[in-house]
Design a protein around this nucleic acid. Structure first.
Lengths: 218, 218
DNA sequence: CAGCGTCCATACGGTTCCGTATGGTTGGAT
DNA sequence: ATCCAACCATACGGAACCGTATGGACGCTG
């Protein structure tokens, strides 16, 4: 609701062939044709970029590396994107959309099922199985420490997640301040475990996590 | 081609200064010579390197940037360090020593004061006041995602911290598994809050933090 | 078939950074 | 006075990348 940043810019699909000042004249022609070798589109570049981001961080996300990863040259990249910054912004938009839709899906529940939905949310987000998502999350958060745009996106995602959790806590009958405190505790814990290396300290990590989740949610 | 023969210096294979962090206790006559412009030593380089690491991450820690930050050229750097990796290893050693000694200092207490020591530890580590330490922590942890050496150091630091907290919980009379679970929850929370941007969501963050700390430690 | 838009390859100049080679300066020991 | 070791500057080759310029292949359309 309060999302002030609406990304409804219709001119976002400008191709960057030349710096001619002529905007695309509507171009109401049909969708992408299908040549024999499937042409890459923006989303394919962004998807692969997110994979590289997860592995190597923002500073490791280089256009020539990315192009080589897609078996093309950067001549293709600069047709789809104005520059590297343009790619990074697109990555942030896609990541934000995915995180917002995901947290809404994870926290939706029937009336009365809020407590189990909370435990489910903690379980999903604190699980080590979704390693790629965790790596992306860590990379974006580290990126946000030095980039204002990334910081803004992280803040919006955090706000959405906190609001989703808070809604569940409130539905469980908690006070406003307790619901907010538990929400902060929930996500702080979830983000924290993804950073820690406690395998040696806690061989029974799964049981510990269940104990902790129970203590956060109830 | 035969220019090496003209050089009368027989040993020129190693130009950079050896020996890592152990101060030379031998060589009694060798005190610090004080030229007009104080010469840099390894620790000065490492200290400044950690500052840059906090701001720009590992990938932003470049030897030419670092040298310029110290008002010298990299010719000086390569006298003190074998290469960039040598500097990074030294950074890890110094960081680890500092974190281990710090957590031991924070968690030491008189018998009977374990509960307050726990609250104090949470308060110190979750406080946003030590911003530089948080940034270093985040940078090192992100670094550890792609570097085995850094990952090893992070693991050791985490193990030491978990052990320190666990000791306090055990002294409070908790069972072994509960003490370990609470330790994991404590540090996961502490690391997590340092990553979150919840100012907008929780204007009364201090009260929330106290509520959370009480719930973790008690 | 001629023309145009789409998508990609190639080539190039420029910047940043690494690591090495080598020379210069300084202060203390001999 | 001289020599040496500590410490730093300068210069260089090479690699990795960025962004631009330009042309080519290919399919669609008039």
């Amino acid at each position: 609701m309060d999302a002030a940043i609406l990304n409804s810019n219709p001119k976002k699909s400008i191709r960057y062939r030349m710096e001619n000042s002529i905007p695309p004249t509507a171009a109401p022609s049909r969708t992408a044709p299908s040549p024999l070798r499937a042409a890459l589109d923006r989303s394919a570049w962004v998807r692969r970029a997110i994979t590289i981001l997860a592995d190597d961080g923002v500073d490791g996300l280089r256009v020539e590396i990315l192009a080589k990863s897609l078996k093309v040259t950067k001549g293709s990249f600069y047709w789809h994107f104005k520059d590297r910054r343009d790619l990074l912004d697109a990555v942030l938009v896609i990541w934000k959309e995915g995180r917002v839709s995901d947290i809404r899906k994870q926290t939706q529940c029937q009336p009365g099922g809020e407590a189990t939905a909370l435990l489910h949310t903690i379980d999903v987000y604190a699980a080590a199985r979704n390693r790629k998502g965790i790596h992306i999350e860590a990379a974006v958060r580290d990126w946000a420490r030095r980039d204002a745009q990334a910081a803004s996106v992280v803040e919006e995602v955090d706000a959405e997640r906190l609001a989703c959790a808070c809604r569940l806590f409130l539905a469980c009958g908690m006070s406003d301040s307790e619901a907010r405190a538990r929400s902060v505790m929930l996500y702080a814990y979830v983000f924290g475990v993804s950073l820690m290396r406690c395998d040696r300290f806690a061989p029974d990590l799964l049981e510990l996590k269940h104990w902790i989740a129970d203590r956060i949610a109830r």
